[in-house]
């Protein structure tokens, strides 16, 4: 289980995260939603240990998160790959870094599940589509079978149909492999469809933390209601049933 306890992160005098506490059990999904600048990506950086905490503690099963070798799927899929290397070379970098042999069929199996061909892995980032690049990013994240995967706006660069397809692939792979997913997204529709819990961040604080089904029915906070109304107005949540 991922435990975030009373975490504060300061950037200069601003509290980028202010007294954040969360629990994400193994195998489950926690969606972190909120507007630009709310602190969503800072939370990811804090969980990964990339920035120091002014206060609080973050752990996985009681140990530092780094010990569980968490993986990250980034927002801009093509920018997340080294333009000089083939997709295959970049995808295998974490495997080389982990110095643990990969089960023989794991690469083939994940490629098959993520609809990535051997031929495609030989290409460079600019020679594949954004949707393919994001699936390759997911492949890279899952190769070492991490118990915790962080997703930073994993769908926002994709078109609507590709978004839904990729979201379903992530959910299917999660069901098969049991990793916990912390998904940062500004899309409440995605969060509502694919998470057990939703944390609404605003100006570095948690405005609302709720079980997703409850939040979707009736947010308890004013800001939660604003987000829900926006998702309905933009068609991400359909109220026409």
């Amino acid at each position: 289980m991922l435990s975030v306890d009373q975490v504060t992160v300061k950037r200069g005098r601003v509290r980028a995260l202010d007294d954040i506490s969360l629990r994400l059990p193994a195998g489950q999904t926690l969606a972190v939603v909120g507007e630009s600048g709310a602190g969503k990506s800072t939370l990811i950086a804090a969980v990964l240990g990339l920035i120091g905490l002014a206060n609080g503690r973050i752990s996985w099963d009681g140990a530092p998160v780094a010990h569980c070798r968490p993986a990250l799927v980034m927002q801009e899929p093509r920018a997340a790959f080294n333009p000089r290397l083939s997709i295959r070379q970049t995808v295998l970098e974490p495997v080389v870094a982990a110095r643990q042999p990969l089960p023989a069929d794991r690469l083939d199996y994940l490629c098959d599940r993520l609809e990535l061909s051997t031929e495609l892995l030989a290409r460079r980032p600019h020679e594949i589509s954004i949707g393919q690049a994001q699936r390759a990013g997911i492949l890279r994240a899952l190769l070492n079978a991490p118990p915790l995967v962080l997703f930073d706006e994993p769908l926002s660069a994709l078109d609507a149909v590709t978004q839904k397809h990729t979201a379903q692939l992530i959910a299917d792979l999660q069901a098969e492999h049991g990793f916990a997913a912390l998904i940062v997204t500004h899309d409440l529709g995605y969060a509502a469809a694919y998470s057990e819990q939703i944390a609404v961040l605003r100006a570095g604080r948690i405005a609302e933390l709720a079980v997703t089904a409850r939040f979707v029915r009736a947010p308890a906070s004013d800001y939660g209601r604003t987000l829900r109304a926006a998702a309905v107005a933009l068609g991400a949540l359909d109220d026409s049933a």
């Binding site: 609507a160 149909v161 978004q163 839904k164 397809h165 899309d187 529709g189 995605y190 509502a192 469809a193 979707v216 029915r217 309905v232 068609g235 991400a236 949540l237 359909d238 109220d239 026409s240 049933a241």
Partner: peptide
Amino acid sequence: SALTRHRSWLTLPC
């Protein structure tokens, strides 16, 4: 049909 199938993430209960 692909677009209509993927129109929204979730249909809210009435």
